[in-house]
Design a binder for these strands. Structure first.
Length: 288
DNA sequence: AAGCCGTGGCG
DNA sequence: TCGCCAAGGCT
């Protein structure tokens, strides 16, 4: 696995070498952006963010609306709000430095079990189990012999990820962190959800799923998320208008986002509740 | 603890 | 075409 990673790892900008205290902020930003969003879409936005806000204090000094606008079309814009709030917390509680402690990371807005582990491993080289959808899929196949992991993360999966996490040899303390990123990368590039490239897999010979003849998923059918006509679609349209506008938009300007008045107004109210939109002189705007 | 929360590319 | 899926978190 490690040899495969050494040869095939993508050259992603947030992976560039450097001291942990320099990597932590870029890694944190990348990890939040990568929550449910593909690498290709994240990369240009990440570059713009890091250029504009090279450290947490720079972001914290600006209004949350700037973070939302710079988020662009990455989706789930509450992440932008949380990242802005996390920057503020880093400044207030940690002197402007992203903490390395797992509990302190978890206490930051938008940082859950995965992201805290990812920052710990990828920025601070910690030996922590990083369990994302890629890792879950790789372990489900190679160890559990299943086509797909369970719909939701289970305690057993976390325990399995901990169990397979290698110990650090005395001459290579970073090996466990490298293992974590290697498993993720394998899931992203080879052991993919749709059409896994098992012919290119370095561990195909010991993969339980392959040995079992690659049986199809036997779990319950996954519930696809509805989209058309949902509040998410309406909220997305409203926020897209506000992102592009230089200033506040009035009710008439926002009405083009959606025909159904009641649903549109409900969604606008929910955006206000979330803090993504604020009432402003002459209508509504991103939080200034 | 299910359900909600964006967006766009791909098979 | 259209459902699936992409480095989850929060309530």
């Amino acid at each position: 696995m490690l040899a495969w990673y050494a040869e095939h790892a993508r050259d992603l900008p947030w992976r560039r070498p450097g001291p942990p205290e320099k990597r932590a902020w870029p890694v944190l930003v990348s990890e939040v952006m990568l929550q449910q969003t593909p690498v290709a879409r994240v990369e240009p936005v990440w570059r713009a963010w890091l250029h504009r806000w090279p450290e947490p204090a720079a972001l914290a000094a600006e209004p949350a609306g700037e973070a939302v606008r710079a988020w662009g079309r990455l989706g789930y814009p509450r992440r932008a709000l949380r990242l802005h709030a996390a920057a503020g917390a880093v400044v207030e509680r940690h002197g402007g430095r992203v903490p390395s402690d797992q509990a302190e990371l978890r206490a930051l807005p938008g940082v859950g079990a995965y992201t805290a582990a990812a920052v710990g491993a990828f920025a601070f080289d910690q030996r922590v189990a990083v369990v994302d959808t890629n890792v879950r899929r790789v372990l489900a196949r190679t160890v559990q012999g299943k086509a797909q992991p369970a719909p939701a993360l289970t305690a057993a999966e976390t325990a399995l990820a901990v169990a397979v996490l290698p110990e650090a040899p005395s001459d290579d303390p970073v090996l466990p962190a490298r293992w974590s990123v290697a498993v993720m990368e394998l899931g992203a590039l080879v052991c993919t959800a749709r059409a896994p490239r098992c012919g290119a897999c370095p561990v195909v010979d010991l993969c339980a799923w392959q040995r079992a003849g690659a049986p199809p998923d036997d779990g319950p059918a996954r519930r696809g998320q509805a989209w058309h006509g949902t509040d998410r679609q309406v909220r997305g349209r409203l926020l897209a208008l506000l992102r592009e506008a230089p200033g506040p938009l009035d009710a008439a300007a926002l009405s083009v986002a959606w025909d159904d008045d009641a649903q549109r107004e409900r969604c606008l109210a929910s955006l206000v509740t979330d803090g993504l939109v604020v009432p402003a002189e002459g209508g509504w705007a991103l939080p200034g």
